[in-house]
Design a protein around this nucleic acid. Structure first.
Lengths: 251, 251
DNA sequence: TCAACAGAGAGTTCTATAACAGTCTCCCTA
DNA sequence: TAGGGAGACTGTTATAGAACTCTCTGTTGA
């Protein structure tokens, strides 16, 4: 009686059915699914079994469950808390490295054209420019320039970014980060970043460009980071849920 | 009665306890944990509850569950099927790119010291050296040198690698790939690879070093790839299953 | 000697029931 | 009119019991 006909588990079949309905638009993004008890009844299944199906959908980030409120279809791209450079710092700290952040510049000024395009600013509109240098093991390793859109920028510009991460400050200011996209390319160290990183221009580096969006798809932060190749590397390892990407210090 | 004292769920407390015992070495890697029913009894908890704890550990890749056999402490790194350069080719093909592979060299010869160390070869032992150039859009983009350990190498050396991927050939030869670890670093194009890639030496590139292991932790393949920075980039995006890493052609 | 069978023991899935903990609304009170 | 609390939701975590599949092993039979 347990597996239906072939030998697919009930909860997997239910998860697949719900996933199809979500993807087909039968349940719209942001909308609440029927309550768990109702769903379990309509599928003729126990609450526990239905919850196993929901857990799978939750693992796939298709739904979001909120205690006391309901189960909601996730927006096209889903909320998460940390950006990858934040997790870089976390990873290194876990490995016992001493990671420090120095603020090399902080000013509200007119954004250059490329940044304005990324943040969808009107021509001439100003934004907060935050320039930081991350160092670990006593040596500078990452040079990072972030542009933050107003009016969000006005709420966080007085924070101490040597202690607080940009994303923590955003969260404190009530800004919910929805998603981020990042592109990493190899490149050569340019002279201006070279001054901060104490390496000769032309050294191999990783160039990261990241744009972070809020829930309503507004770009809030544009990040351009230069990561020293001599200090950093990307390690990838295949695990069950796919590819895991971690940053690590070069040994 | 539900949450213990404060308000931590039982299954979380159990998961934390088991995780601590695994990390402390109380349960050694590869060793089987006590049966679920035994564990549930010793924690004074239901099978369902204990299984929730195990599921969490499984999500964290700390244990591996095998139906009919037992629950085992995971080795430091875990199993997977595909290598990331394989998925590179797949990704590009899905994007409609024409990906071609040319074999620039194939010979059984004595492995250099660094490779011998990676594959744990005895001094003077020979291996299959496979040199390939991947090109898409009609331009060479990746230069790749793979060393395959014997005796596996003898079983695949006559395959046509312009059509068959190395990993497909390995699978056909009955070699089960267990895991692979890869390190990607930025670098500068060296002269020998520059000849194959038709780019000036010193251009920014990604250097990938990957070692692939079989189930019994024997290293079988050592890969060193040079990926042109002008042609390739790494895009990361927080999406459904967490961090997804994809390779893409530079537009 | 070797192959096939049966059973024990492992993980897996499901049913049925109950209680716990947030969240929201509405009605009653001050 | 404002405040507070009860109750009806929501998801969450737990109980107990049973049937199922897969793997291994020991025994039986040819």
């Amino acid at each position: 009686m347990t597996p239906d006909a072939g030998h697919e588990a009930r909860y997997r079949a239910i998860a697949a059915d719900l996933a199809a309905k979500i993807r087909s638009g039968h349940y719209a993004p942001g909308e609440a699914l029927p309550p768990q008890r109702e769903l379990s009844a309509s599928y003729g299944v126990t609450l526990m079994t239905l919850r196993q199906a929901l857990r799978q959908l939750s693992d796939e980030r298709l739904i979001v469950q909120q205690p006391g409120r309901g189960t909601f279809v996730a927006p096209p791209h889903l909320a998460y808390q940390l950006d990858s450079l934040r997790s870089l710092v976390d990873d290194l700290r876990k490995q016992g490295h001493d990671v420090r952040t120095a603020v090399a510049g902080r000013a509200v000024r007119r954004a250059p054209a490329r940044i304005a395009a990324e943040l969808r600013l009107r021509p001439g509109e100003t934004a907060l420019r935050l320039e930081r240098v991350r160092e670990f093991g006593g040596r500078p390793a990452v040079h990072q320039v972030s542009w933050v859109r107003r009016p969000v920028a006005d709420r966080i510009r007085d924070r101490d970014f040597t202690v607080v991460s940009l994303y923590t400050a955003l969260a404190d200011a009530g800004v919910t980060v929805a998603r981020a996209s990042e592109v990493v390319r190899p490149g050569l160290l340019d002279p201006s970043a070279a001054r901060h990183l104490h390496e000769p221009p032309g050294s191999p580096v990783l160039l990261s460009a990241r744009i972070t969006y809020t829930l309503d798809a507004t770009p809030v932060v544009s990040d351009h980071a230069t990561i020293l190749g001599s200090m950093m590397e990307i390690r990838t390892e295949r695990a069950a849920t796919g590819l895991s990407l971690t940053w690590g210090a070069t040994s």
